[in-house]
Design a protein around this nucleic acid. Structure first.
Length: 555
RNA sequence: GCGCCCGUAGCUCAGUCUGGACAGAGCAUCGGACUACGAAUCCGUGUGUCGGGGGUUCAAAUCCCUCCGGGCGCGCCA
């Protein structure tokens, strides 16, 4: 029912007819907008063509609008009226009966209403969380997880083929540091007064890990550990922590299609291959014993080292290879979701993607870290410092659905204040319950109807004309607009638009519910209202599914 | 110092990309509504130098410049 596009086409046709009739002069029709209006007195949709065409036509905007209206031929029964308003807007008032058709469409499509073919044939990868396995996921990772998962759902709803991926950074110093941290905790447990290294991971979880390690009957290394021992301990710790991360994400409702290990890049010699590709095009050079990538060729501030003078590859080298691999796997678009503290890293990766020939196909979304408060006091969150609130704790305290919903009520690039105490206290008037309650309430209505022996009869569009209340029309319009909203949210990679829509739809529903009874002696009206609110229930469930939040039948 | 993000109602935030007609919501405040399909709800109530200043435009919260606040980043670390 792409109403905006339909109106847009009608106006274009009208303008051309006006030109042929000699009532309007212009070379080509300029780009113009058909927008939903903010105020009911302006109708449902407004077009600004007359305003942008006035100069070319050498006529006042309102005069242009008049000509266009005179030549506009809308399908029978679609428009109630057109008006010229303000500086020269053309306002369109859509007929009520036209809005009512959305019920039939939702009934026909069921849970698929809201899906589209916009991204048909486009394969997208969303990579998110990708936290290093050196400690439990914290609340900031939770935000990235909620965003990435919802975005993946959203893109899928818009017709894309989507894969979710988690990149495991398991090569390099941090594994050694992790091993060292575990080692020192083990020594402590055996009663030695050792000084824990400043660069170690100080979180309490390392102590638990050490205890579990011993409980499994494994022996702690001696006072003079070999590097091999530390590496072995590091890998052990990394594996255990990664398992916990997987469990946390699973409980948070996030499922990844692939867990991609950095080690795999080296196993497949992808780093060498990406170097060769860059070398062939002259994008690599040696200086001071190190190998550099000409990132400045592609707009980055400075060139970047990919192989250090000691022979070790940089993290960046891995990422170049990783993204080469991503695109080789056939993804048309790759979306990376990172914490905003990595934003300085984006230009060099974009540069690499361009150098490898994948210009315009990588998108980096930066999600601002959550500034966490507890009773108004900021809580420091560093993995090494060890004071942080884990995603697990947040899930336990405020619930999975509430946490996800809160994360998804903000734009990714806006900083988010999350006060645990407030979030807990507000649990009864948290917006997520407002939306879920609307869904559960409708389920309850149908249970009530069934209890009264009232059946939901076959859809009969003739009865829709009974839906005449302002509340009913407001709801119909929202429902009709939903597919377009999903497409817009997907195109802009903004799941939070769904969150806001759902809150508004729930508000409309609650208000409608409170003012008017759905079940009455009037059979036709009752049935018409059933179909309407059943449509609302379908759309609420669809939107909540995108957010990864439950749509409960009871609460 | 340079770069990126943010600055909208008492608080938390939509709206900015794709400029439009008097700038929105939730919370908080205050006052109402359950013998009726679920009161986790509804109805009413006040709220603004859209950080400041310039510019572009018929039209600027939105685009451009500049300044001021806050956050983050500027390694042959990850």
């Amino acid at each position: 029912m792409h109403l905006k596009k339909t109106i847009h086409d009608l106006i274009t046709a009208s303008a051309n007819r006006s030109k042929e009739a000699g009532e309007l002069t212009f070379e080509t029709i300029p780009a113009f907008e058909v927008e939903a209006t903010k105020h009911p007195e302006h109708g449902d949709l407004a077009a600004n063509l007359a305003l942008v065409l006035a100069k070319q036509a050498k006529m006042p905007p309102r005069k242009v609008a008049e000509v266009i209206i005179n030549h506009l031929a809308a399908p029978e029964g679609m428009l109630l009226k057109m008006e010229i308003a303000g500086p020269g807007f053309i306002n369109f008032f859509i007929a009520d009966s036209y809005w009512r058709r959305v019920i039939s469409e939702i009934h026909r499509l069921g849970p698929a209403y809201g899906n589209s073919e916009m991204g048909a044939g486009v394969k997208v990868q969303v990579e998110f969380v990708s936290a290093n396995p050196t400690g439990p996921l914290h609340i900031g990772h939770g935000r990235g997880a909620a965003l990435g998962d919802a975005l993946a759902n959203l893109l899928a709803a818009a017709g894309h083929t989507v894969e979710r991926e988690y990149y495991i950074n398991d090569v390099g110093n941090q594994i050694l540091t992790l091993g060292k941290s575990l080692y020192f905790r083990l020594r402590e447990l055996s009663g030695e007064a050792v000084e824990f290294p400043a660069d170690g991971y100080q979180g309490g979880y390392m102590k638990d890990l050490a205890r579990d390690y011993l409980a499994q009957g494994q022996a702690a290394p001696g006072p003079e550990p070999h590097a091999d021992d530390l590496l072995r301990l590091g890998r052990y710790a990394g594996d255990v922590i990664l398992d916990e991360i997987k469990q946390d994400l699973n409980d948070f409702g996030v499922r990844f299609d692939h867990w991609f290990s950095e080690t795999e890049l080296y196993r497949q010699h992808l780093v060498d291959q990406s170097f060769t590709l860059l070398q062939e095009q002259g994008y690599l050079y040696e200086q001071d014993g190190a190998l550099w990538f000409r990132a400045t060729e592609f707009g980055d501030e400075k060139d970047r080292v990919v192989r250090r003078s000691n022979g070790a590859f940089t993290y960046f080298a891995s990422d170049v290879a990783y993204h080469l691999h991503k695109f080789r796997r056939g993804f048309d678009r790759v979306v990376d979701i990172w914490g905003a503290d990595h934003h300085g890293y984006a230009p060099r990766l974009q540069a690499a993607a361009q150098a490898l020939g994948f210009t315009g196909r990588l998108q980096v979304i930066l999600v601002q870290l959550v500034s966490l408060l507890r009773q108004g006091e900021p809580v420091a969150m560093t993995t090494r410092g060890g004071t942080f609130v884990t995603l697990r704790e947040v899930m336990d305290e405020v619930g999975k659905d509430a946490a996800r919903f809160i994360f998804l009520t903000r734009r990714p690039d806006a900083q988010l204040e999350f006060d645990l105490e407030v979030a807990k206290q507000q649990s009864s008037d948290n917006p997520v319950y407002y939306v879920q309650y609307a869904h559960a309430r409708l389920a309850s209505v149908f249970r009530q109807a069934a209890a009264q022996g009232i059946e939901i009869e076959e859809l009969d569009p003739a009865r829709f004309s009974r839906l005449i209340l302002p509340e009913e029309l407001a709801i119909l319009k929202m429902l009709a607009n939903y597919p377009e909203l999903v497409e817009g949210a997907a195109r802009n990679r903004e799941p939070h638009r769904i969150t806001y829509f759902l809150t508004e739809l729930a508000a409309q529903l609650h208000s409608y519910y409170y003012k008017h009874r759905f079940i009455s002696d009037d059979v036709e009206l009752t049935q018409a209202r059933f179909w309407l609110v059943s449509s609302v229930k379908t759309v609420l469930a669809h939107g909540l599914a995108i957010l990864g939040v439950e749509a409960p039948e009871t609460m």
